[in-house]
Design a protein around this nucleic acid. Structure first.
Lengths: 263, 263
DNA sequence: AATCTATATTGCATAATGTGCAATACGGTG
DNA sequence: CACCGTATTGCACATTATGCAATATAGATT
């Protein structure tokens, strides 16, 4: 597709092919057959076989019992379990986060879900020099913050119930959503329009917009948004702000999904 | 260690090396330098460089901003997020589960944590033909079942509080643990001796032993155990039963951790 | 059951590919 | 500025991965 620019650094062909196999298998909903691999790689069956066999010996692939096609193996699983991913999103998204903060001249946050809370894992402030660490690590409720609701966007009734029980939700301000039903409705809305808002539902006087960050398959892995006092961040700004926030969320997702890393 | 038996199927050397790099980086707490990779692989720096470079281009590795050593990249992250791991444990453990059930001639279960519940993902019954699916999918509370408590073994006070709130725990039987304090103590005990018990704490008249399944780094990824009515499963059998359960938990862990898959 | 097709697996010779060596560039330190 | 360690590139050679062709295996069709 892309005209190879500078293969200055030689690619290790067979490793590259092996990685392609891993990704094919990981992305496919069904087990992948040898023929499919061979065809996708444009190599002979025998070559695909030996690559796959190597992956299998190392536990990166395995075969469903009795079958001879491939699925991901336990190595991939244990690696992803053991590895500390906590700053992966931060690293990938930090630049975009700063851009957002500068563009809108407000504070931008990056959050992930942590049980029944949203955890702020990074932030960027406008008019400040490159602050390496904001006061990240803050936990806020899912149901009454823009980030939290963005992270909940895909939740259905069952999930909300299991997370928040059947009791009423704790009220923090006069705007806090306290019924599961309204929360569910809001989630639907967020899912449709792509971003969530917080009209002082947790901290009075603060307004916030946040959008979920979605991988290719739609799964939500985090949220990014802008916060400011409602004296400065007016409702009229929702359209333009949300557009920017959505754009940034999309470009972070793109960075995550791109298999070809720039440099 | 093991004398290579039959390298009948040739290994793709460079792919194999690339996988080793991925595992090294994933298992290391620190970023890994090129020199370390070269040394571990017993290849020249330049070769290690080209392998790592290929991995980086594909997003399987990346470099911390400004650094030149390696950490895992976004590809590994997105793959592990998107992939459906729900039956990984089942596949790897099923054989062992059957063995356990047959050995003790009782029902064996495999469970994973799902929020504040334990989810049974597989089971094996003695005296039955190979039942492909037991009634998996059952959710039981974490705090009053052997599997649940095995999954909680490493929990500290903070985690228990955040999971179960400060209220008393729902009583299911006269043996149910209802205070967080006793639960915490029991968790400690379980961690020390390696297995959890359930003396009819959820369903009266049922006794159960379960042990956590731990990866190399100690993280708990599931639990395996044996259940039976207390008329048949006596306290006297704890020593011998627990020994078997622990052994099986260990061998499942071994299957998960082994990078060299048998065949 | 026997045949047939599709797919998996192995052997082997060849050439492409990955490798080590050596040279060069880079980044930080005295 | 010179010095060191490390990263990166060029190049020639030989190891290694590849395609082809042969064989084995499994499932389907008759």
């Amino acid at each position: 597709m892309a005209p190879k620019k500078s293969p200055l650094v030689p690619f290790i062909q067979s490793l590259d092919r092996g990685l392609t196999i891993i990704q094919m298998v990981a992305l496919s909903k069904q087990p992948v057959t040898l023929s499919e691999l061979a065809e996708a790689l444009e190599v002979d069956r025998s070559s695909a076989f030996r690559l796959a066999h190597t992956l299998r010996r190392r536990g990166f692939l395995s075969c469903p019992p009795g079958r001879k096609d491939y699925i991901l193996g336990p190595s991939m699983w244990t690696l992803s379990h053991q590895y500390d991913w906590s700053n992966m999103l931060v690293r990938v998204a930090h630049k975009e986060l700063k851009t957002l903060a500068n563009d809108l001249n407000e504070t931008a946050h990056l959050a992930v879900r942590e049980g029944k809370s949203a955890l702020f894992i990074d932030s960027a402030h406008a008019n400040h020099v490159i602050a390496v660490a904001g006061q990240t690590g803050e936990l806020v409720p899912l149901y009454c913050t823009a980030h939290g609701k963005a992270l909940l966007a895909d939740a259905d009734e069952r999930e909300l119930k299991s997370q928040f029980g059947q009791g009423a939700l704790t009220r923090h301000t006069k705007n806090t959503i306290t019924s599961l039903k309204s929360l569910l409705e809001e989630c639907h809305e967020i899912k449709v329009r792509g971003y969530a808002t917080d009209e002082g539902e947790y901290a009075a006087g603060m307004r916030c917009i946040a959008a979920p960050i979605r991988l290719e398959d739609g799964s939500i892995v985090g949220s990014i948004g802008i916060s400011a006092p409602d004296s400065r961040f007016l409702k009229e700004q929702y359209p333009s702000y949300s557009k920017k926030v959505l754009r940034v969320a999309a470009s972070i997702a793109a960075l995550l999904n791109t298999s070809e890393q720039s440099e």
